[in-house]
Every structure is written in C-alpha cells, then in structure tokens.
Design a protein around this nucleic acid. Sequence first.
DNA 1: ATTAGGG
DNA 2: CCCTAAT
Length: 621
Amino acid sequence: MEVGGPQDALDNRSDDNDFDKNDNSDPVVYQLVRVEGDGTLIPATEDEVLQFETFLHDEKVDDDLPSIDDVTHVEEYFTNDCIVKKPEFEEGPSKLDTADVQTQKLDAGLEEDRLCTLNDSIVLPSNCSAVHDQQLDKLNTEQGANIIAQQDNASTETTKSTVLNDLSSDKEKADACSKPVNEASAGQSVSGVTSSVPDFSILKGEVCLDDLTMRELQEAFRATFGRQTTVKDKLWLKRRIAMGLINSCDVPSSGCVVRDYKVIAMGAKQEIPVVEAIPKMELEANLVRDQVMNPGHERDLPSSLSYHSEEQQRSSKRLKRVPTDNDEPQVTIFAEQGTTKRIRKPTKRYIEELSDIDTHESTGRLSSPGKRHVYDEVLLRPRIAPLHEVDSLSTAYPTREYTLGGCSVHVPYVSRMRRGRPRSNFIPFLDPEPSVECTEAPAADVVNLEKEGERKNHKNTGKKGVHVETSGEKDVQGLQDKDFCNSDDNPKTKRDGKRKHHRAWTLCEVVKLVDGVARYGAGKWSEIRRLAFSSYSYRTSVDLKDKWRNLIRASQTQLSTENDGVCPRKSNPSAIPIPVSILLRVKKLAEMQSQAGDVRVPIKFSGQSTTVVQGKVSGFL
DNA sequence: ATTAGGG
DNA sequence: CCCTAAT
C-alpha cells in the first residue's frame, strides 16, 4: 500500500505499473488504495491489484540482468507449415536487411557466448530468402511439424509441459548445431544471424537509459525532478527521466528529433522518415499533472538518453490540448516523402471526451483508458472514498460512489472486476485447421464445422436459457474446438449493439496476415482478406488492419523491451505469445512499407525456414 | 465499400 | 473490437 502523498499516488495511477513497493514484512494486511486528487482514498479495483502484483513480479526480474535461465527455457519451433510457399521472385537484400545484419552482429558479439553455449540459434526468414534452398526448407518443415506436435501437447497438458518442452529443446539443440551452419554457408555471408535479439534501438541511433543501474536511474530521477523516488521500476524511471529531459529541452536541440516520445539522434540512420508530430503540450500536460516541474534542475545526464514509451503513453495522450505559452511545436516535422499520414479531424466521440476530460481533470487522472468507457460516456466521476454499504441481505459490499448529474450512485466494485473469462484451454495456440488449409489456396471448402459458441453475453442480454455450457465438449474436442463459428454465424445483427464475439487470433491467422501483407502490401486489407482469409469469415478487413497495427506495435515494443529484461505488461496468461521471428518479419515489413511509401508493394519472403524461438518474452496475439 | 486512425 | 472521418 502506498500513501506517499497525492503526488506520487497520482503518478502511479496515470502510468500504472508503478506503485511503490513496501518492503516491510509486517504481518498486517494492507489494502491497496489509490489516492484521488482530492485526497480521498479509494480501494483498488481488482485490476489495479493485479497490476500491483504484476509490478512486484516485474521488479524481481528487473533487479538482476536476465540470467542464463531466461535463455535456457527458450523453445524453438517452426511455424512455416502455416506459411504458404510460392516460388515467387526473391528480393535482394534490402537496406534493411543489411542493417539488421549489422545490428545483429553487434548483438551477436555481446551474446555470443551465451548463444553458443546453448546452441541456440535463430534463422531469420529474410536471410534464407536470399537463397532458396528447397531441400532445406523441406527438412525444416518436417521438423517443424514435429515440434509443433510436441508444442501442442505441451500446452495442452500443463503437467507434462515441462518434460515436453525439455524434449523439444534438446532436440533442437542437437539440430541447431548443424543447421545454422548450412544456412550460413548457403546464404550470403550472414553469419551474425544468430542473435535472437536484434537491437533495433541501436539501429535507429537511439541511446537508452538501459545501461544505468537502478541506483543511477533513481539518482537521475532526483536530479531531473528534484525529488527523491523510491520507485524501483527501471522502466518507469527511464520513462520519467526521459520525459523530463525531453520536456525541459535538455536534449541537444540540434541533432535530435522527438518522435513518439523518443529522442532520436538525427545523425544516425534516417531510414524512418515518418516522424509523428507530437503536440508538445502532451508532454507538458503529463508533467504538469505530475506536479514535478522543475525545469532548472536537470543535470546533464548523458544527453543521449532516450526512452521508449510506446503504448503506455498512447493512452494518456491526445486527450487535451492545454494552451501553453509556447505552443509552437518544438518538434521537427517532416511530412515530406509522401509518407504523410492521413490526418483526420477529431471524432465526435473524441470531442465529447474532451469536454469530458475537464470534468475528470480534478480527479487528477485522465481516466484509465479502456476500462471505464461506460463511466466516461456517462460522465460519471469517481468521487468518494470507499465505504461499505449494507444491503438488505446484510451483506457488505464495497462500493464506490459516483456522481451522475447530481445524483450519487453507489456502484459495487464488482462491476469493474469483470475481467476476460479465463480461457478454458490454450489449445487455440495453433490453428485448428489442418495445415492443408493453411496453404493459402483454401482447400475447396473446409466445411465450417464451426459453430459460434455464443456463450458470451452473460448479462445484459436476454440470451438466457440457451446458455448450454460448451466447456464440457470443448475439453473433449481438444484441438478442433477453437475456431468454430459458422461462417453464417453472424452472432449479432450489428444493430443489436452487441459486441462481436472476441476471437483470439491464432498463430496461423497471424502468419497469414503477415504473409498477406508481405505479398499484397499493407493497406490492401480487403484483398488480403479475400485471398488469404477466405476461410475465416469472421475476420473483416478492418480486423486485419487492426491486427496488423497491433503486430507492428508488438514488434516495436517487444523487440526492444526484450533486452532490458523488463517484462512490459505481465503477459496475461491467456495471451498467445507471438514468435519472435514473426515479429521480426512484421517489423521489417512495417519499416519497408513506411520507408518506400506505398511505392513498393508486393514483397515476398519465401522459403522462410522460420526457426522460431518462443522466449519468455514475446508478443501476444 | 474501403481505408486510416483514434478510442 | 468499435466508431467515425476520409477516400
């Protein structure tokens, strides 16, 4: 529990994941609370508690550099049996490829011993594409099938998983010894491909705070904001520091550009022409909110410090535009290169939220995005501290009082605790459909023996009675169970306001998507959908687009995060980790596409002997 | 109808 | 995923 004054509390809230840890082992049971702007205390919701716990975990991991153990559990498996192979034209190594290789070499140098020791190697698709060795591919494919089978079992039977994993690892270790060699000799002198974690941040010429120790970070924090901090979350500290620096112009104003909250050294690598203009106010708004303005205090930490905030910040951004004295963009913008993003004027919804914000402002937090739409929409506003309301049944429920247009309402916390139902099984990891289906050309009609579970709406829907518990047969059906949805199944007639049943993306789908993008280009969603997703009636072009966007984010965050052993968000167990190899492809495609601005379209990565490592840290579907 | 973006 | 603006 943390009651370190409103300031800190607010900080923590807005950035979640950063509660201070109370290392005192007092047996007393503490309750996690949040301090609102007006000083009231509000018991944490389940979500928050979870986050807190998560934080504690992360912290542990954070204290030491990733141990060998982290790498030891790496598991390799193939995914290319889901990838369509076509003898299409190959692309010579692009700039990107070269760049990657270089970085990887760099990285390889650092991790060489580790990797060697483990015989752990990854073969990047792109490198293989240079020289398409069918033999090799076939071989890999076969192995892939094998491994996948094991993988499958592994995820199915939790009990045996350990054993199975070990087996597959061992098997791989053995293979890995020879395989890489082949690849290397066959491909073009790309020997450095053995790094599992290409350091893309270096690639972009960014310098990070990553090297600093916890102590140094805290010190830097103090120097920057003029106050002590007990936060031990490196990620958080780095973010703070970086932002502080950015805001106070403590960054070499000449050679740098602020992009997406990152400080990018202009000198290096200009392969990413797209620079998002970020209203400076946003940054300021953040800081103002944090009450940590102290412009004159920054010391010069390595001016090259930078920090990736990606996602986290996105949430709080663009919410308000505070008229500041110096409103002029201090950001270098280049909208040239035709890479200009389509700008759109604020949505109605957006506007509403804006006015909404004002209402919220006093609470000090701009609504934790994503979890209270309902509340926001109605202009509800958390107000009072916790209190216990005794209902007729003399049962005490913790409630929260909201003021709704004058009337105050007590809402039981429960309403907020509804988290996604714990997935009953993880099987959907692999695509249900036979690998045959995966081969692009939809094998005739793989009868959609799928039927929508439609077992969602537990509430607010008159859908009672028909609520046959499908879980039973589900378990039995095992693999088959995952994707059922009758193609005709249009669960909701849109107008019902019903939400489309959430379908987790399967690995196979992702692969198809990536492939599709590679082939037809990002943006050709309808095409990709027609040609590659004809069998998935429920994936709309918009879905594809969204997914792609997420993949890109993942590929950016993920890969960079992976280095500093800081697990971003505790992987929610129900999420499927995306193999790094795929993320790499995504990243490449993404860069490629933004770099060559639409001019280039079809690019094919063929013959990918996608040897993948499913490390502990990877993307999520 | 599609796409791009913001939520 | 949803929603809306832009094409």
